[in-house]
Design a protein around this nucleic acid. Structure first.
Lengths: 350, 350
DNA sequence: TGCTAGCACTCGCACTGATGGAGTGCTAAA
DNA sequence: TTTAGCACTCCATCAGTGCGAGTGCTAGCA
């Protein structure tokens, strides 16, 4: 049992056929099947020896003594990293994708992309809303509510509207609020939210004497308005119900945890955020994600870019046992098409 | 077997105890249990005779020869209509509800109501967005974007913020937009959106000569902003995952159909629309809804009103076997509190 | 006439043991 | 190094069994 065997060409070949077979059948695959399926012309007995090695390496696993082998997470990982032969998209799928994403009638390309991902893969599709790296304050406005509460509305980057309710110590008149808003707009408009936050803090610490009461009130309200902003990121998820068809998610507890994660959103967002860093296709297999809810799922994602800048992530969620060789190129292409569709310069063709 | 027996006091009493018992246990209830549970002091044998009658009437049903009885849909219906003894809300639940709905911090009362319904019942909560007609305009604001597009922000009823992008024929300066907004605020603030829409149409048809250019521009923008807003009916559904805990929904096909109905939305909307007509609490039990997806579910709803006008519906979705005597008053009260919270006149107490 | 006690009967469920098939590990031979 | 053969293990399936719960029916009682 020399150590050179570890990366043996032959055993890798066998791992590959095993994973492929398991993905298509869903049954643990035994040595006899493997012997016929692979082109290696080896007897089942030989294959059993190789399997034992692969099991030692943690790449495959036997559910019980007499049950054939199933790929482990590391097995899938090795398969995806080094053994996979990617299948290019069928051309009719490609044209369909292209059409749907470029002739978007609803003004909801993001939703359309998500639906495409879900429909064509029969799994769940997810697309994060595109976001700008830096958020610039464009305009702020205060509206008085009852009992010293104030509704703050502010617009960032061109056209994103946020609102928030703050409680003020004293009750302001509409005119005072208007003045405060004017003041804040005049000095902060065009600055990034981060810069505004810093400046506000500095003003409150150092310059209290230098400011008049109106300015001070305004800055105090700004502090409340931009406090811990949570930068509400969001995504569009579709086709969740497709996941109910998979036997690996038939367990109600698992399914429930997964769906809870979907509606809590934060874990999913966190996961997608990680995919934003790496460009190209990024894959989490089973437990790799680090979130229990995704334990039996895989996530195939790709970031998408507008004018060479990454602005969001999209992907597909399904059981670990999914047809990676088709899903990967599909996600890849969809990301590119979405990026193109979002690009303001390249108006949609036709 | 005289026909007078059909509405026999005693058999109804027994049906009542049977349903109550089944709701709390989930097991088919046998004659012995029923004999002890009811205050009637009857022997199991007598009760068996009554049960046979109830079965003939289609009010109860026996899953198999030796299994006790389970209420049918008609059984539940009779229970709910004539036998139910409603349990008033516990006062701490009431205060909790009241607090949550009146001190809404997020500017999302509808979402808060939905979450309350789901959390307190451990089932799914649903609230339709209030009908447009009774939404009052509070404040409107225009912000210029590139290429002749304008971002419209408007606030309705106390604190709901909406935004929309419109395309204008000519390009306006920020000052012009400001003037238009001022004009619109001065004449329309406090009016319902419907009234605004009507008035806008009338102005454009009749009074063009009477208005100066600025007013005309303003009114045209108002038309775009409030135009055919699709009256996009929609609802906020929360706690779907709670439904995964119920054994009657453990069947994956059923569950899937239900969740698909949730994301398609249209069936649910249609169902909720029916509840809008009837005021007071409305209940669909099992197949009564007419939608297969809801076959094993019940829906307890109530419309909610602002200033004596029905503007929406809210309710709870759960398995047919639910604690109606608690859910019904709960839905009822929540609807009233939500109506109050949405009322622009009655500012939130405290 | 209405209620009840008793009894035979039915059905589902949980447990048992037997059987067969699939697949393995090990060993010895080519 | 590979292969054939063999004993072994484990799972899934099925039939058989006993038990408990609950029923329907009948006869007797107030």
């Amino acid at each position: 049992m020399s150590e050179a065997q570890v990366l043996n060409e032959r055993s890798m070949q066998l791992l590959k056929t095993l994973v492929e077979r398991y993905i298509s059948d869903g049954q643990p695959v035994g040595s006899r099947v493997l012997s016929k399926d692979s082109d290696l012309n080896l007897s089942p007995a030989t294959i059993r020896n190789v399997m034992a090695d692969l099991e030692d390496l943690g790449l495959v696993h036997s559910p019980h003594t007499s049950a054939g082998r199933v790929p482990t997470v590391s097995g899938y990982r090795m398969f995806v990293n080094s053994l996979l032969t990617v299948k290019p998209l069928e051309s009719k799928e490609l044209t369909h994708l292209h059409q749907q994403l470029s002739h978007d009638e609803q003004g909801d390309v993001i939703g359309a992309a998500s639906r495409l991902l879900a429909d064509l893969t029969k799994m769940a599709g997810v697309v994060t809303l595109p976001k700008r790296e830096v958020v610039f304050l464009r305009h702020i406005e205060f509206l008085p509510l009852s009992h010293g509460r104030v509704l703050v509305i502010f617009v960032t980057n061109e056209q994103e509207v946020h609102n928030k309710i703050i409680h003020t110590a004293k009750v302001f008149s509409p005119a005072e609020l208007q003045q405060s808003a004017n003041y804040l707009n005049s000095i902060y408009s065009g600055h990034s939210l981060q810069a505004v936050r810093k400046s506000v803090l500095k003003d409150l610490q150092d310059d209290q004497e230098r400011m008049n009461q109106g300015m001070l009130d305004a800055v105090r309200m700004a502090q409340l308005a931009f406090g811990q902003d949570a930068a509400k990121e969001d995504y569009v998820l579709t086709g969740e119900t497709n996941l109910m068809g998979f036997s690996e998610l038939a367990d109600m507890d698992r399914l429930r945890k997964l769906f809870e994660a979907f509606s809590q959103k934060q874990d999913v967002i966190h996961l997608l955020d990680q995919c934003m860093q790496a460009d190209g296709v990024q894959i989490f297999i089973g437990e790799e994600s680090g979130y229990q809810a995704f334990d039996h799922c895989s996530l195939v994602t790709s970031s998408y870019s507008v004018s060479d800048e990454v602005v969001g992530v999209l992907g597909v969620i399904g059981p670990t046992r999914m047809a990676y060789e088709k899903i990967i190129p599909f996600v890849d292409v969809t990301a590119k098409l979405l990026g193109a569709a979002l690009n303001p310069k390249s108006a949609s063709p036709l």
